[in-house]
Design a protein around this nucleic acid. Structure first.
Lengths: 142, 142
DNA sequence: CTGTGTGCAAACTCTTTGCATAAGT
DNA sequence: ACTTATGCAAAGAGTTTGCACACAG
């Protein structure tokens, strides 16, 4: 008997499974995050989207909620540039294009990149995650 | 007749070549940065080091100076985590270990990693840089 | 009802800026 | 001398926190 994939569970249930009560705000934010496929958002962007969608959530709550979602493994943090925090709704193994100037992030399926010859981590350490970020710029000669 | 490699030029000359006047502070900061081989520092760390070394430079000047050095291509910015900015004195092509919790950065020579099958960048874009960050954590089972 | 979540505003950290003073050429 | 850099303090962004009120179970 096949289990229901996480992505097909109703949002409320996904939240409950993570020990988070499905409040109005959390459900609304999760809906915005997961409805449109994989996304890369800042707190600010999600907040504006929520307010625009008639969900009057506060900035602080968006911060808190995204951190809770991150701890629950529903989303993850991207370190692409040091000023703002980006959250990625795709928690599977994959990499990123980052468009400089535009500050946009695009997914690269992990199958598209081969990484070989990884050096062994220092004694007592293990690899938590490998991030590959390909920084893009507008082509000059054109 | 071989040119003098940049790394063997006196600091003052390197600064002048970049259009930066070799002031006390800039020379002192560059000395600290480049004397001990490749380093990964935050502004705060370099500031403390400078003050500790008897160079009473202000935090604001360290910020300004590191940005000037970055524009001059002498150092580069590392995006490893979103709170603080790390500067890397090694501007050649290489990658990084990042030790979570400890917030330490280690170099990985580029020859140690093979990246294959890079997807083509979107139309009109070119690759500015490829960053590989291998995030490490303390091994659990031990 | 009871406990958890939310909103607001204030605090906090990191970073940048403006302007008078100091240093470099 | 003339120009550019520095220091300080204040402003600015992004983020976190504390506490009273509101909502979910």
């Amino acid at each position: 008997m096949p289990m229901t994939p996480v992505h097909e569970m109703p949002i409320e249930e996904r939240l409950r499974c993570s020990g988070l009560r499905p409040t109005r705000q959390r459900v609304a934010l999760a809906d915005l995050l997961f409805a449109k496929g994989d996304r890369h958002l800042t707190v600010e962007e999600l907040h504006e989207e929520a307010v625009g969608a008639g969900v009057p959530v506060s900035l602080a709550t968006v911060y808190n909620t995204l951190h809770q979602f991150t701890e629950a493994g529903m989303i993850r943090v991207l370190a692409v540039e040091s000023s703002k925090t980006y959250f990625d709704t795709n928690v599977s193994d994959h990499h990123h294009f980052f468009i400089e100037g535009e500050n946009r992030v695009l997914d690269i399926p992990v199958s598209n990149i081969e990484i070989g010859n990884l050096p062994p981590p220092p004694e007592g350490m293990e690899i938590a995650h490998v991030d590959v970020i390909i920084r893009l710029r507008q082509r000059k000669g054109a």
